[in-house]
Nucleic acid binder design. Structure first.
Lengths: 209, 209, 209, 209
DNA sequence: TATGAATGAGGCTTCATTCAT
DNA sequence: GATGAATGAAGCCTCATTCAT
């Protein structure tokens, strides 16, 4: 009876799968993993609860898949090497902008990873949030190290500097999202970033009086 | 009616109450609010579940009480005014140290407040974590503003600077706690703080070329 | 989506639902709402407690559904208009018989509604027992009014007369059910009704000395 | 230390006991037996829960005591014999008024007895509500029987007549209390009673056309 | 694929009652 | 008399998951 419905059977299935992941991510991020029920997800996705188990092994599998698929395609600071040739100022500006873009685009997953970090601690080896964080700091650190070697900035622990800069931006973003919500005191992130870059650059530059 | 409170009976009761709060805070912080059951708390405290409801109205009340009693006696940056007379370097150092101490002492509650921020959103007026954050940043900002007026540092949005400095430290601390856990890559927070202060001071000082 | 409803699966479901309602009504009526536990109902229906929540939102929903579905299909005195043409004697007899039938058939629900009236007071607008009572009295009253206008009976407040007649029968029936239980002193309701009609007709007839 | 507090130790105790009974009756009547907790009663009476068990054996004992003490001092229709000499009209009027007074004064206990009748079924022999009802109807019936023997009214089953008259009034009163609450449609009970007496007297009188 | 009935375990909470103080 | 801490059982409900259809 159903005619011409299945232009591509796997197409519809794939769309369903993606939507389930999307809905799950949103709900997990908004309400927390434990406070989100399978029923919530199914209802929001317009699907029955049972069907969810055709696409995923269970609730935990949903979470794991979300983290894997959401983050792997575009790890933070992946294209950072290309900026070794830029002037310091512009390079740091790109790094900051890149990080901010990432935070904005992956707001939900970042919030989730922080709130529910403990849920990933089982696969201790492949705890993805941890890896992302460490790799990103290493890349950023490597970039700074080169500049130190070129004598452009002061000699300091480069990874600590990276954590300092990134942490500042991440904290600003998350506090704005998590704590302040939509408050009048909101400040545009770009405004903050500009100030941060300014201070950071002044702070690390070689400044022989 | 009776005012005496320290008889052996009410003393024990008070101790119980405190222990319940303490155990709850630890479990909430470790496993998350939703993932911690009343049974867990009662078991850990060596108490029947029912008794918990003699001391608290319910699970939510437990959380609310924790936040109120844990935080209110010592808001962050409360004694900050006293340092207006110190040299800039030492002042910032004190601020940083104070914040770090706070983070260390109230590690559990800070982690909880960030992870489960959504749980407090109901009492929109008295959302304590938000208030603490805002007040702290205002105090820190006010301190910086005075220094600007004295011409000791550059003119910039003082609250943004405060958020920048604090966010960096908080992010470092929480990431270490939440993401990295007890990893070999751990860096002593004091080390990080020293570096942060260094860069920050350089970054904001008035640097007449 | 699918409109067919009578497959063997959904058929069984519907039967289950009905049985749950039936069992609930019986237990609520026998033991009272508060004294009947969900477990009691589930056990009696041969079902797990959890399943009950697949069919109903909760205990209160069970009660609400019972009242709605039990009563709405056949409001008391609904077919009363058709008797305006009958001789007074037979008309009142039919009314009484109709009411008695109703009391017998819906014994459980009537007992429940009276015993647990307070449970319905929330939906103040649609408090069904109240509406049923009021509507029934209005219909009965309208019938009597016509007879007064035709000069067949004395002029009195028709609704009060209706309440007088009905209340007498209801009280008899419920007392027999509630207070006396299965006692030897039981009197057949039909016997009482005959006496009631007799006195009532004599009492309201126009009796020109 | 406590001076001159105990004018009569048992006086205070007795007052407490009475108040506990009074509060219990009110709450049981308003919310039902099962829905009223010991804590509710204690709180409302300004007493701790534990103390309640010095005065009563438990919740059930409270209920039993309420029924016994509330009703025994002034059973319905107790002074009815004195009216055998009155004219029929006035006699019935007194009976009705007496019943109505009783209903008004003991509103709470009557409502409770009807709602929670099942709670008394254990002492099957001394089920007080049942006894009261039966005794009252017997007395009323005896009164009517005498009038029949004197030829003042028609020959009918006197107890049935008593139940008819009383049931009507009781039903009116309880429906007004339970179902209608404080509604605009309320009718003064005295109004109803007058109508009831009128019809009843007409209905039972010997009326040879 | 897709449904939704069914389960069993566990979660939060209330309560009548006891008892040391 | 009086308190209120403590208990254990039970109550209502939610949930992740399975499975016949």
């Amino acid at each position: 009876m159903a005619i011409q419905r299945e232009t591509s059977r796997s197409g519809k299935a794939e769309r369903r799968r993606k939507e389930l992941l999307q809905v799950s991510l949103r709900l997990f991020s908004e309400n927390g993993y434990d406070a989100t029920s399978i029923r919530d997800i199914a209802r929001e996705a317009g699907v029955t609860e049972g069907l969810l188990y055709h696409y995923f092994k269970g609730k935990k599998d949903l979470l794991k898949t979300i983290v894997q698929e959401s983050v792997c395609d575009g790890v933070v600071f992946e294209q950072l090497d290309q900026i070794d040739l830029l002037p310091m100022e512009e390079a740091v500006c790109r790094i900051g902008t890149h990080l901010l873009e990432n935070l904005k685009n992956k707001k939900e997953i970042f919030k989730l990873m922080l709130s529910e970090a403990r849920l990933f601690e089982e696969d201790n080896d492949h705890f993805i949030p941890k890896l992302i964080y460490q790799n990103s700091m290493l890349r950023f650190g490597a970039f700074l190290k080169k500049r130190m070697e070129r004598g452009e900035i002061r000699e300091m622990d480069p990874v600590l500097l990276a954590r300092q800069f990134s942490g500042s931006l991440v904290a600003f973003f998350l506090f704005q999202e998590i704590l302040l919500g939509k408050t009048v005191t909101d400040v545009p992130a770009e405004h903050f970033l500009k100030c941060l870059i300014d201070v950071f650059l002044h702070g690390i530059r070689k400044c022989e009086q």
